[in-house]
Design a protein around this nucleic acid. Structure first.
Ligand SMILES: [Mn+2]
Ligand SMILES: [Mn+2]
Ligand SMILES: [Zn+2]
Ligand SMILES: [Zn+2]
Lengths: 146, 146
DNA sequence: GCGTAAATGAGATTCATTCTTATTTTTAAA
DNA sequence: TTTAAAAATAAGAATGAATCTCATTTACGC
């Protein structure tokens, strides 16, 4: 099903000089369908559940290749496992609030903060490539029930 | 030597309800003496070099206990190992620029950025506890020699 | 369709961190 | 100062995320 989406993802992969394997297509399709921040094991299990044959090693290798091409973004929430999300356009960059109680992740974007980052880099003659701006704490849901 | 410093660190540990073991004192003394961002193994090796008897497990456990009490700060530079630095006062909080070429770490503090973080938290009814603001890229030294 | 380079599967391996248990140390009280 | 209980430590085993190995399969330009 969704042969059109498959074709489109095949196209995307080739534009980034990546071979369009069924595993990579399935992985991209999975991440495209959600805003969740999966780790590699979760992605592996989801693909199995969807009857896709894939190995753990391929999940890791695919995520590496896709991240290299900025098709997915690696997220490090500091709990020992990397998370991944589908990269949206440059204009859709966002950072994260992470609830330490329930694990909920709230996405946000703050233009002034991004501007301050560039300003700090200039002051230090530093050429930025990526950044992590993660704020840990307690979300509104968890605040009420201590 | 520096019996005074030892006494002072003993005091600090007890104020935080931690037993003042020779290992914890040595670890704090080590981190007090530098601005470097050591990982656990480096700390372990440094302590061995200084003739302190300590085991890897104790380094990890001590760092956990000290971080719990905010006497040290855990840093995650995303390369698979945690780094640690001595926590300074609340007023001496800083974030990091990390050179992906040479590993150099530049510390910075930007008040406006911190203010924006609080503003984002308020907007989302989120109570912050800590944050990571790490900017990865290329330092001035590495820019020149590609 | 063919050939070749690249990707995959399955499991072994690595390496940071955590866990286990016997032993030692800290600390408060006698 | 000696003593006892609780806590911390040493040494190495265990864990788990991520990477690597190599035989097999697949993608894709011709
Ligand atoms: Mn996100
Ligand atoms: Mn620092
Ligand atoms: Zn929550
Ligand atoms: Zn550099």
């Amino acid at each position: 099903m969704s042969a059109a989406e498959n074709q489109q993802l095949k196209q995307v992969l080739r534009e980034h000089e990546l071979k369009a394997t069924t595993q990579r297509i399935a992985l991209l399709k999975l991440l495209d369908a959600t805003h969740e921040h999966f780790d590699a094991e979760e992605i592996y299990l989801e693909l199995l559940k969807k009857q896709k044959n894939v190995s753990r090693a391929t999940v890791y290798r695919s995520l590496e290749a896709l991240a290299e091409q900025d098709l997915v973004t690696r997220l490090d929430f500091g709990d020992g496992r990397m998370r991944f999300e589908r990269s949206k356009g440059e204009d859709e960059h966002h950072d994260h609030l992470i609830c330490e109680e329930c694990g909920k992740v709230i996405e946000f974007f703050n233009l002034e903060m991004e501007a301050q980052q560039l300003s700090v880099c200039e002051e230090n003659d530093f050429t930025p490539s990526t950044h992590t701006m993660h704020i840990f704490g307690t979300c509104s849901d968890c605040k009420q029930t201590p």
